[in-house]
Nucleic acid binder design. Structure first.
Lengths: 207, 207
DNA sequence: GTCTATACCAGGATAGAC
DNA sequence: GTCTATCCTGGTATAGAC
């Protein structure tokens, strides 16, 4: 018996590949594209640099593969969320619940915030990735909300889709501003107040 | 007579300094922090690299100086905007005008968009700059809008500040999403429809 | 398929002439 | 105060052993 890895002496390609992607995620999310070095990626993945290059063409290829993987995996969590199903119930409750969950999910999820930073920060150099992000991410969310709002005749909304965009946009902006740009430390604004303000604006039953 | 610069053979320090900042702006806004090289900054400023280092301690110092300068100069244009004065008039008109101007200003101003990308993208590495941005930028704008909304008793707003944040947040998010992330090419949404939706949501007089 | 070792290049920063 | 020339580190990518 030696001190090496007991289960499988020779690890297979798929294992290495996912280890590399995992290391790449750690580095790219923390440092951004240009500041990340293949050395550190290899170290984080506990793999030699040459192995990284045998699995991915170059730094750019690795980055693109990583982002695509994150889009597919991370997103179902944040945007697909508990409400993959259609929404139903009284607007006040549904909207409050929806906003609350969305903020909670994103604010807790630091890696996802780093991912937002990365996508926005690198959107100049990697426009394709930004386009893919715009295309896939808020699609289902927006569409579900739009349908729900459109079906609530009691709300008297002139443009349900615009309303849905305002709803989501306000919340995403809240996260970008308060969290990514540290506004919470400098011009704080309670999460609950934001949510309540948004719900009141949309529902607006004269209570 | 030689072929060199006729006006002043030896340029002064202040001139060089602003040339360097100008070159730095060009490079940092286009490439981001890490991908920008001091060589290219010097070239863009038509100055030797040593001169750059005589005016600024290092790359980081140059970057910070640049961002601070941009905050002070660029901002009065975009956020101070035509409405530095207090707002007055009927809500529908004022809000529509305000939103329209704000979007117009930001969407036309590509350098400012690059600046947003930069601030968000580098907010992990330069949290101080992000904090300064959060602190100064939308301050006056938000405050003016909040006061205006609070004064319009006809609107029946429960929380004018929350409403003001939703207003600005929706619009900023619109820019980030549609412009910076190229959503306009992939899930387009008319600017005017966004503005109208926002105004309708806030004003909401049953016409 | 994976590692070690290395080629090659570029970037940040500085020394020294003028 | 500004330039030219240079140092040195560290990065991407690959060659060759196992």
């Amino acid at each position: 018996m030696d001190t090496k890895s007991p289960p499988s002496e020779r690890q297979l390609s798929a294992t290495k590949r996912s280890a590399i992607l995992s290391g790449a995620m750690q580095e790219f999310l923390a440092q951004g594209y240009a500041a990340t070095t293949m050395d550190r990626v290899a170290a984080a993945a506990k793999v030699s640099k040459a192995t990284v290059y045998s699995h991915f063409k170059d730094k750019e290829g690795l980055f693109i593969a990583l982002v695509q993987q994150l889009q597919e995996k991370k997103f179902q969590v944040v945007y697909g969320s508990p409400e993959g199903k259609r929404l139903q119930g009284p607007p006040r409750q549904v909207l409050h619940h929806l906003a609350s969950n969305m903020l909670e999910n994103i604010i807790e999820d630091k890696p996802f915030q780093a991912f937002m930073r990365l996508i926005i920060g690198e959107s100049g150099r990697f426009p394709e990735l930004a386009r893919a992000f715009s295309h896939h991410t808020p699609r289902c969310f927006l569409s579900i909300l739009k349908d729900y709002l459109g079906a609530q005749s009691g709300l008297n909304l002139k443009d349900p889709e615009a309303t849905a965009r305002i709803f989501i946009g306000s919340l995403v902006h809240y996260v970008i501003f308060q969290e990514l740009l540290y506004a919470k430390e400098v011009v704080p604004f309670a999460r609950e107040r934001m949510i309540q303000g948004l719900v009141d604006l949309i529902v607006n039953d004269s209570a």
